[in-house]
Write a protein that binds this DNA or RNA. Structure first.
Length: 256
DNA sequence: TTGTGTTTTATTGCCTCC
DNA sequence: GGAGGCAATAAAACACAA
């Protein structure tokens, strides 16, 4: 079994017992009733007594004993400087704390495990907040997209009305083509966009998305198909065709 | 006081490195 | 093959509500 000496804190100012706020019932009992305990054994009168393993074996066989605050504090400090324990430091610490080297290495082992858990927790929270941020950006883009769409269709309506009431006079040879192009360009829901000109970023007929992790690719493909039919009202589908220039996306978050 | 959930100490078994 | 690390787990110690 491990050392039974840890109630002794060599660095404590009193030079013997380091009293904890949370002592186990056995110890608390012995402290509450000093007279009784002193009958059994002189109450930790010297460090040597504390190393008397036979005594502990009698009193608390195979019981786990918690480290004192002071011991933990020192171990924590040591852990801060280096979370791995080389043999020399282990023996030094063990000596200083009155622990078995094995106890020190076990403590470091457990401490690393705790640190890892905490780290995972932190990473999770970080990822979650980043995800939430993306989601809220996504929502606002959806809204923008929706309002732009309605703007486009209202403009298209206006243009159409204007053309019906006052047909544009064009040379005979070119009369048909521009009219068709206008229709095409202004028709909503297609992959192309009426609000984009040649110099504007072009839409890619692909599944590229700002949100690869949010919008599944197969979903985007379906949406694109719908778009090509010119009948989709799905906002996601519009978003799937995020503006892309030269094969690189650009957008809210400035990534390329 | 007791039941229950959490934390801490310790063990075991497996893996990697030298 | 031994030493040391890690994950999983046990069990004691502890906190706290009812």
């Amino acid at each position: 079994m491990e050392s039974n000496s840890f109630f002794f804190d060599p660095s404590a100012s009193h030079g013997n017992i380091f009293f904890l706020g949370n002592l186990n019932p056995v110890l608390q009992g012995s402290m509450m009733n000093m007279e009784e305990s002193s009958k059994r054994r002189p109450f930790f009168c010297s460090p040597e007594d504390l190393y008397d393993e036979d005594y502990y074996d009698e009193q608390m066989p195979d019981k786990k004993r918690r480290l004192t605050l002071e011991q933990v504090h020192l171990l924590e400090k040591s852990f801060e400087t280096e979370n791995k324990l080389e043999p020399e430091r282990k023996t030094q610490l063990a000596k200083k704390l009155g622990l078995q080297p094995r106890q020190v290495s076990v403590w470091f082992q457990n401490r690393r495990a705790r640190w890892k858990t905490k780290q995972l927790e932190r990473d999770f929270n970080l990822l979650k907040s980043s995800y939430d941020q993306l989601l809220s950006n996504y929502d606002s883009i959806l809204k923008d997209n929706q309002s732009l769409r309605s703007e486009v269709s209202s403009l298209a309506e206006k243009v159409q009305t204007k053309e019906e009431t006052a047909p544009v006079q064009v040379p005979e040879s070119n009369q048909l083509e521009p009219a068709i192009k206008t229709e095409e360009r202004l028709s909503s829901g297609s992959v192309g966009s009426a609000v984009l000109d040649e110099n504007a970023p072009q839409l890619l007929d692909s599944c590229d998305s700002y949100f690869p992790s949010i919008v599944p690719v197969h979903h985007l493909q379906e949406d694109n198909n719908n778009n090509n039919n010119g009948s989709s009202d799905n906002d996601r589908s519009c978003f799937a065709d995020v503006f892309v220039q030269g094969g690189e996306s650009f957008g809210y978050w400035g990534w390329t």
